[in-house]
Amino acid sequence: MRLVFSQGFFEGFKKIVPELSILFLAILSVQPQSLLGNSVISPFLCLSAVFYWSLHRQGLFYVITLIILGIISDILTGASLGFTPILFLTVFTISSWQRKNVLLKPFHLIWGAFSLVSGLTFVIAWAITSIVSFQYAVVGPFATQYFMTVITFPLLVWLLSHIQKAVSV
């Protein structure tokens, strides 16, 4: 009986591993006193995770979960509610749409696809920031975070693929 319960728990846990990984990365990104320092712009790791799981876990990865995770991220960062879910949904939709064309390609092509998708997402983020603050937002910090996100993508993919293998998601 106990074994059945623990098996059920593990099965349930496996199903929410993608969501948990995105949540953990969202929390990690707002951690104060990081080793790099607070003023250093950190990569948008959640975006990379959303892209990865959208390719690998399409069937289970529902839009409503992304909206909830985005809202949690907005509360943690202090962004306007709804800002991050829009970015997540953009990445999710494009990667789901192009999933068949991307998934079995060599890694450098997947990386290229991510740099294009995240580039578009950062343009949307910049446009929303400019519109809601009624002024032209400086492009520099957006460009810095975009490049950091693209550069750290292979590392995050390596980590997430190991997690995926470990729990056989």
Binding site: S29, V30, Q31, Q33, S39, I41, G78, T129, F142, Q145
Partner: peptide, 15 residues
């Protein structure tokens, strides 16, 4: 104490 600190380019706020 500072609890969270957003390090992104979208918003500069802390809890």
């Amino acid at each position: 104490r500072v609890v969270t600190h957003s390090g992104g380019p979208f918003v500069k706020s802390m809890l």
